[in-house]
Protein backbone atom coordinates (compact mmCIF):
# COMPACT_ATOMS: atom_id res chain seq x y z
CA UNK A 1 0.00 0.00 0.00
CA UNK A 2 1.47 3.33 -1.02
CA UNK A 3 1.23 5.94 1.72
CA UNK A 4 3.14 8.79 0.13
CA UNK A 5 3.54 9.14 -3.60
CA UNK A 6 5.56 12.10 -4.84
CA UNK A 7 5.77 12.40 -8.61
CA UNK A 8 7.68 15.04 -10.53
CA UNK A 9 7.69 17.48 -7.60
CA UNK A 10 9.21 20.82 -8.59
CA UNK A 11 9.44 23.75 -6.20
CA UNK A 12 10.14 27.23 -7.55
CA UNK A 13 10.43 30.67 -6.05
CA UNK A 14 8.46 33.53 -7.57
CA UNK A 15 11.63 34.95 -9.13
CA UNK A 16 12.21 31.76 -11.08
CA UNK A 17 14.79 29.78 -9.08
CA UNK A 18 14.19 26.06 -9.05
CA UNK A 19 14.84 24.67 -5.58
CA UNK A 20 13.56 21.14 -6.02
CA UNK A 21 13.63 19.66 -9.51
CA UNK A 22 11.45 16.80 -10.71
CA UNK A 23 11.67 14.72 -7.54
CA UNK A 24 9.86 11.42 -7.29
CA UNK A 25 9.59 9.30 -4.15
CA UNK A 26 7.19 6.69 -2.87
CA UNK A 27 6.83 5.42 0.68
CA UNK A 28 4.72 2.41 1.54
CA UNK A 29 2.86 2.06 4.86
CA UNK A 30 5.33 1.11 7.62
CA UNK A 31 8.36 1.77 5.40
CA UNK A 32 11.39 3.52 6.84
CA UNK A 33 12.94 5.84 4.32
CA UNK A 34 15.93 8.17 4.53
CA UNK A 35 16.35 11.42 2.64
CA UNK A 36 19.89 12.59 2.66
CA UNK A 37 21.83 15.49 1.22
CA UNK A 38 23.83 18.54 2.18
CA UNK A 39 22.35 21.85 3.38
CA UNK A 40 20.36 23.58 0.67
CA UNK A 41 19.74 20.42 -1.32
CA UNK A 42 15.98 20.84 -0.91
CA UNK A 43 15.36 18.11 1.66
CA UNK A 44 13.49 20.27 4.16
CA UNK A 45 11.44 22.00 1.46
CA UNK A 46 10.34 18.61 0.22
CA UNK A 47 9.12 17.63 3.68
CA UNK A 48 7.25 20.93 4.08
CA UNK A 49 5.67 20.46 0.67
CA UNK A 50 4.33 17.06 1.76
CA UNK A 51 2.09 18.87 4.27
CA UNK A 52 1.39 21.85 2.01
CA UNK A 53 3.44 24.15 4.24
CA UNK A 54 5.77 25.80 1.73
CA UNK A 55 6.81 29.32 2.77
CA UNK A 56 5.17 32.29 1.02
CA UNK A 57 6.56 32.95 -2.43
CA UNK A 58 7.26 29.32 -3.27
CA UNK A 59 5.08 27.20 -5.48
CA UNK A 60 5.03 23.45 -5.96
CA UNK A 61 4.09 21.69 -9.17
CA UNK A 62 3.82 17.99 -9.84
CA UNK A 63 1.92 15.61 -7.62
CA UNK A 64 2.09 14.70 -3.96
CA UNK A 65 -0.42 12.11 -2.87
CA UNK A 66 -0.52 11.51 0.87
CA UNK A 67 -2.81 8.69 1.98
CA UNK A 68 -4.98 9.28 -1.07
CA UNK A 69 -5.16 13.09 -0.73
CA UNK A 70 -3.64 15.31 -3.40
CA UNK A 71 -1.58 17.95 -1.54
CA UNK A 72 -0.37 20.12 -4.42
CA UNK A 73 -2.96 22.84 -5.00
CA UNK A 74 -5.21 21.58 -2.19
CA UNK A 75 -7.21 24.09 -0.16
CA UNK A 76 -6.16 24.97 3.38
CA UNK A 77 -9.32 23.35 4.77
CA UNK A 78 -8.42 19.95 3.33
CA UNK A 79 -4.79 20.30 4.35
CA UNK A 80 -5.74 21.00 7.97
CA UNK A 81 -7.46 17.63 8.08
CA UNK A 82 -4.45 15.79 6.68
CA UNK A 83 -1.84 17.43 8.91
CA UNK A 84 -1.14 15.62 12.14
CA UNK A 85 -3.21 12.55 11.29
CA UNK A 86 -1.78 11.39 7.96
CA UNK A 87 1.67 12.87 8.51
CA UNK A 88 3.42 14.86 11.24
CA UNK A 89 6.83 16.51 11.40
CA UNK A 90 9.52 16.72 14.07
CA UNK A 91 11.75 19.70 13.37
CA UNK A 92 15.45 20.22 13.79
CA UNK A 93 15.44 22.92 16.45
CA UNK A 94 13.32 21.86 19.44
CA UNK A 95 13.58 25.21 21.23
CA UNK A 96 11.96 27.21 18.46
CA UNK A 97 9.47 24.47 17.59
CA UNK A 98 7.73 24.89 20.95
CA UNK A 99 5.71 27.96 21.87
CA UNK A 100 7.86 29.68 24.53
CA UNK A 101 4.85 31.05 26.41
CA UNK A 102 2.77 27.90 26.58
CA UNK A 103 3.26 25.14 29.11
CA UNK A 104 4.47 21.94 27.49
CA UNK A 105 1.39 20.00 28.58
CA UNK A 106 -0.99 22.41 26.87
CA UNK A 107 0.95 22.22 23.62
CA UNK A 108 0.55 18.45 23.57
CA UNK A 109 -3.05 18.67 24.74
CA UNK A 110 -4.05 20.97 21.89
CA UNK A 111 -4.07 18.40 19.05
CA UNK A 112 -5.40 15.69 21.41
CA UNK A 113 -8.36 17.83 22.40
CA UNK A 114 -9.10 18.85 18.84
CA UNK A 115 -8.68 15.51 17.09
CA UNK A 116 -9.90 13.09 19.71
CA UNK A 117 -12.28 15.36 21.58
CA UNK A 118 -10.68 14.59 24.95
CA UNK A 119 -11.44 16.82 27.94
CA UNK A 120 -10.52 17.36 31.57
CA UNK A 121 -8.94 14.48 33.48
CA UNK A 122 -9.08 12.24 30.43
CA UNK A 123 -7.07 14.79 28.47
CA UNK A 124 -4.52 15.09 31.27
CA UNK A 125 -4.05 11.35 31.37
CA UNK A 126 -3.57 11.31 27.59
CA UNK A 127 -0.93 14.06 27.89
CA UNK A 128 0.90 12.15 30.63
CA UNK A 129 0.76 9.00 28.49
CA UNK A 130 2.13 10.89 25.48
CA UNK A 131 5.05 12.15 27.59
CA UNK A 132 5.66 8.73 29.10
CA UNK A 133 5.83 7.02 25.75
CA UNK A 134 8.72 9.25 24.69
CA UNK A 135 10.45 8.11 27.91
CA UNK A 136 10.30 11.42 29.73
CA UNK A 137 10.77 11.15 33.46
CA UNK A 138 8.18 12.80 35.74
CA UNK A 139 5.62 13.51 32.99
CA UNK A 140 3.51 15.61 35.36
CA UNK A 141 6.37 17.95 36.14
CA UNK A 142 7.35 18.26 32.48
CA UNK A 143 3.74 18.96 31.49
CA UNK A 144 3.68 21.95 33.82
CA UNK A 145 7.05 23.31 32.64
CA UNK A 146 7.66 26.02 30.05
CA UNK A 147 9.94 25.01 27.17
CA UNK A 148 12.87 27.04 28.53
CA UNK A 149 12.69 25.16 31.83
CA UNK A 150 13.58 21.77 30.34
CA UNK A 151 16.71 20.56 28.57
CA UNK A 152 17.25 20.36 24.81
CA UNK A 153 16.87 16.58 24.75
CA UNK A 154 13.67 16.81 26.78
CA UNK A 155 12.33 19.48 24.44
CA UNK A 156 12.94 17.28 21.41
CA UNK A 157 11.13 14.43 23.15
CA UNK A 158 8.21 16.77 23.79
CA UNK A 159 8.21 17.75 20.11
CA UNK A 160 8.20 14.05 19.23
CA UNK A 161 5.30 13.45 21.62
CA UNK A 162 3.39 16.28 19.92
CA UNK A 163 4.03 14.81 16.49
CA UNK A 164 2.92 11.35 17.63
CA UNK A 165 -0.12 12.60 19.57
CA UNK A 166 -2.56 11.96 16.75
CA UNK A 167 -0.98 8.67 15.64
CA UNK A 168 0.10 9.81 12.18
CA UNK A 169 0.60 7.18 9.48
CA UNK A 170 3.83 8.88 8.43
CA UNK A 171 6.35 10.54 10.72
CA UNK A 172 8.62 13.04 9.03
CA UNK A 173 11.77 13.64 11.07
CA UNK A 174 13.67 16.65 9.73
CA UNK A 175 17.17 16.43 11.23
CA UNK A 176 15.67 15.65 14.65
CA UNK A 177 19.04 14.99 16.27
CA UNK A 178 21.21 17.67 14.69
CA UNK A 179 20.62 20.27 17.40
CA UNK A 180 21.25 17.82 20.23
CA UNK A 181 24.36 16.83 22.18
CA UNK A 182 26.07 13.80 20.73
CA UNK A 183 25.29 11.75 23.82
CA UNK A 184 21.59 12.59 23.57
CA UNK A 185 21.49 11.98 19.82
CA UNK A 186 21.90 8.22 20.14
CA UNK A 187 19.07 8.01 22.70
CA UNK A 188 16.82 10.04 20.44
CA UNK A 189 17.52 7.81 17.45
CA UNK A 190 16.83 4.68 19.47
CA UNK A 191 13.62 6.20 20.74
CA UNK A 192 12.36 7.11 17.27
CA UNK A 193 13.35 3.67 16.02
CA UNK A 194 11.50 1.91 18.85
CA UNK A 195 8.35 4.01 18.68
CA UNK A 196 8.07 3.69 14.93
CA UNK A 197 8.50 -0.10 15.05
CA UNK A 198 5.94 -0.41 17.86
CA UNK A 199 3.31 1.41 15.84
CA UNK A 200 4.21 0.15 12.40
CA UNK A 201 4.47 3.75 11.32
CA UNK A 202 6.18 4.91 8.15
CA UNK A 203 9.14 7.27 8.56
CA UNK A 204 10.77 9.79 6.29
CA UNK A 205 14.02 10.55 8.03
CA UNK A 206 15.82 13.61 6.73
CA UNK A 207 19.47 14.23 7.54
CA UNK A 208 22.79 15.29 6.13
CA UNK A 209 24.43 12.54 8.16
CA UNK A 210 24.56 9.13 6.49
CA UNK A 211 25.51 7.43 9.75
CA UNK A 212 22.35 8.73 11.42
CA UNK A 213 20.11 7.77 8.53
CA UNK A 214 21.63 4.30 8.29
CA UNK A 215 20.66 3.67 11.88
CA UNK A 216 16.90 4.12 11.48
CA UNK A 217 16.07 3.52 7.84
CA UNK A 218 16.18 0.76 5.26
CA UNK A 219 16.22 2.67 1.99
CA UNK A 220 17.64 6.11 1.27
CA UNK A 221 17.28 8.73 -1.41
CA UNK A 222 20.29 10.97 -1.96
CA UNK A 223 19.56 14.57 -2.99
CA UNK A 224 21.89 17.20 -4.38
CA UNK A 225 20.92 20.68 -5.58
CA UNK A 226 17.23 19.80 -5.59
CA UNK A 227 17.59 16.62 -7.63
CA UNK A 228 17.47 12.96 -6.66
CA UNK A 229 20.96 11.61 -7.30
CA UNK A 230 20.69 8.04 -6.16
CA UNK A 231 18.25 5.74 -4.42
CA UNK A 232 18.62 2.34 -2.88
CA UNK A 233 19.17 0.11 0.13
CA UNK A 234 21.21 1.79 2.87
CA UNK A 235 23.82 -0.98 3.11
CA UNK A 236 24.04 -1.18 -0.65
CA UNK A 237 24.65 2.55 -0.95
CA UNK A 238 27.24 2.58 1.77
CA UNK A 239 29.10 -0.37 0.26
CA UNK A 240 28.78 0.48 -3.43
CA UNK A 241 27.83 4.10 -4.02
CA UNK A 242 27.13 4.59 -7.74
CA UNK A 243 27.38 8.36 -7.80
CA UNK A 244 30.43 10.42 -7.02
CA UNK A 245 28.46 12.63 -4.66
CA UNK A 246 27.19 9.69 -2.64
CA UNK A 247 30.69 8.28 -2.50
CA UNK A 248 31.88 11.61 -1.08
CA UNK A 249 29.15 11.50 1.58
CA UNK A 250 30.07 7.94 2.51
CA UNK A 251 33.77 8.78 2.60
CA UNK A 252 33.20 11.75 4.91
CA UNK A 253 31.12 9.59 7.27
CA UNK A 254 33.90 6.95 7.17
CA UNK A 255 36.63 9.49 7.88
CA UNK A 256 34.76 10.69 10.92
CA UNK A 257 34.20 7.17 12.15
CA UNK A 258 37.81 6.11 11.69
CA UNK A 259 38.97 9.27 13.42
CA UNK A 260 36.80 8.30 16.37
CA UNK A 261 38.10 4.72 16.24
CA UNK A 262 41.71 5.86 16.36
CA UNK A 263 40.97 8.00 19.35
CA UNK A 264 39.20 5.17 21.10
CA UNK A 265 42.11 2.84 20.37
CA UNK A 266 44.53 5.17 22.00
Amino acid sequence: MTLLDIRGLTIRTTDGHTLVDDLSLTIAGGERRGLIGESGSGKSLTTLAVLGLLPDGMTATGSIELAGTQIVGAREKHLTRVRGTDAAIVFQEPLTALDPLMRVGRQIAEPLARRRGLKGAELQRAVARALEQVRLPEPDRIARAFPHEISGGQRQRVALAMALACEPKLLIADEPTTALDVSVQADMLDLIDTLVRERDMAVLFVSHDLAVVARVTDRVLVMKDGRAVEEGDVREIVRRPREEYTAALVASARRLESALDTRRAR
Binding site: T80, A163, C166
Partner: peptide
Protein backbone atom coordinates in the same frame (compact mmCIF):
# COMPACT_ATOMS: atom_id res chain seq x y z
CA UNK B 1 8.96 27.40 13.92
CA UNK B 2 6.32 26.78 16.55
CA UNK B 3 3.71 28.27 14.23
CA UNK B 4 4.80 25.84 11.50
CA UNK B 5 4.80 23.09 14.12
CA UNK B 6 1.25 24.01 15.13
CA UNK B 7 0.23 23.98 11.48
CA UNK B 8 1.80 20.57 10.91
CA UNK B 9 -0.44 19.20 13.62
CA UNK B 10 -3.42 20.60 11.75
CA UNK B 11 -4.24 23.67 13.84
Amino acid sequence: DYITAARTSGT
